[in-house]
Amino acid sequence: MSARTAAATRVTQEKWTSVRTAVSDCGERFAALIESTPDPSVSATGHWSVAETAAHVTGIAWNYTVLGSAAAGPLPIPEVRRHMPTATVDNIHAGLNPTQLRAYRERDPARLAARLRSSVREMLTRTADEDPGGTVEWLGGSRLPLAGVFAHLMNELHIHGRDIACGTGAPWRIPDDEAGLFFELFLVEIIRNGTGVLLHDDRPVRRGSIAVEFRSAHTVPVTFVLDTGVFRAEEPSGRADVRIRFRPAALNLMLFHRTSVTRTALSGAVVASGRRPWLLPAFLREIRMP
């Protein structure tokens, strides 16, 4: 560890309450969206229909009912368990995701909406007395606090709700304050607690250090440091190679490849500056999302 101060946890009681409320509210919006879709067979993504996209998100929520002190129990969709230890952002679309969709065959919008609502209620009930900062093992041997798992589901609802809305012409919004919770409770915390093999790939490890400072109106400033293949989160020191000012919803859409880096930058929603901004592409190649 360098002499810089490691970033303090972002898991506070206030954010735990906020992310639970966001999952509840966004889960209901998502359920209403899929119920109102006239034709669930239309495309939502390049690979999935509306029904398949809804089943993907609903399956995640259903498996997330086994959380916290219940984390060692059997998953409602147990077929995905064997893929979890070796999942990476590069193999998830060929392994875990299709396995889940084959195992969970429900495609009726009304039944998917009912299952989603039930799973969200169960998540909230089962974790009401849990420690939001207590960590659980997630994909690829990474570790997340319980609040970070909630933030992941919230982001799945955000991103795939947008996919469905774009495919059907329905309205959809991703609030920046909720998207900021994903940044703080998922991204910062998975880097703090360990990414396991989640970001591993076959490329040679880049030598040297890249420090990127992130600031927004909805998040506490933080610096991510990539040092010879290892990430860590630190408090800003004023010596970052790249400084990023961002709107959380825009950053998330860019990271998950819904908008291009160029389009996002031209909109002014994500602005890069600093003493070595040309290092940002190398950094983003490593902190990539599926």
Rank of each mutant, 00 (worst) to 15 (best):
C26L: 14
E52K: 09
S18I: 05
V19T: 10
L75I: 10
S41V: 02
T53A: 01
A51C: 10
T21K: 14
V23P: 11
G27V: 07
P74H: 08
L33M: 10
C26Y: 15
E79M: 08
E52S: 01
S36L: 10
S24I: 00
P78K: 11
A51P: 09
P38N: 11
V19Y: 04
S43H: 14
I60V: 13
Y64L: 09
E28D: 15
T65A: 02
T21Q: 14
E52G: 09
P40E: 02
T37F: 00
D39P: 09
V42R: 12
T45W: 13
P40S: 09
L33K: 03
P38Y: 05
W48T: 00
V19I: 15
T45A: 13
W62T: 13
P74C: 05
W48Q: 02
T65Q: 12
P74G: 05
A71N: 11
L33P: 09
A22G: 06
H47P: 00
I77M: 00
P38I: 10
P78H: 05
T37C: 13
R20G: 07
Y64T: 01
T58V: 11
Y64K: 04
P74M: 06
R20N: 07
E52D: 13
E52N: 01
E35H: 09
L33N: 07
E35C: 15
R29I: 02
A71Q: 11
V42F: 02
G59C: 08
P78D: 12
A32Q: 15
G46P: 05
S18Y: 02
W62V: 14
S24K: 11
C26V: 12
G27R: 07
S41Q: 13
V42N: 05
H56C: 08
V19W: 05
W48H: 02
G27M: 12
C26H: 14
T65E: 00
R20A: 15
E35D: 15
I34N: 04
A72Y: 04
D25A: 07
G68C: 04
G59Y: 07
T37W: 00
T45N: 14
D39R: 05
S43L: 13
T21W: 05
T17K: 15
L33I: 03
P38W: 08
G68F: 08
I60L: 14
P74A: 15
A31V: 10
I60E: 10
F30L: 08
V42A: 10
P74Q: 07
S69V: 11
A55D: 04
D39G: 03
G68I: 06
R20Y: 03
T21Y: 06
V23H: 02
A72W: 07
H56W: 05
G46F: 05
R20L: 06
L33G: 03
T21M: 09
G68N: 08
T17M: 09
N63G: 04
S24Q: 14
A32F: 00
P40T: 07
A71M: 06
T65K: 06
V50D: 01
L67Y: 01
E28A: 15
V42E: 10
G68A: 11
V19E: 09
P78Q: 12
E52Q: 14
A54K: 01
P40Y: 06
V57E: 03
A55T: 03
G27E: 13
V50L: 03
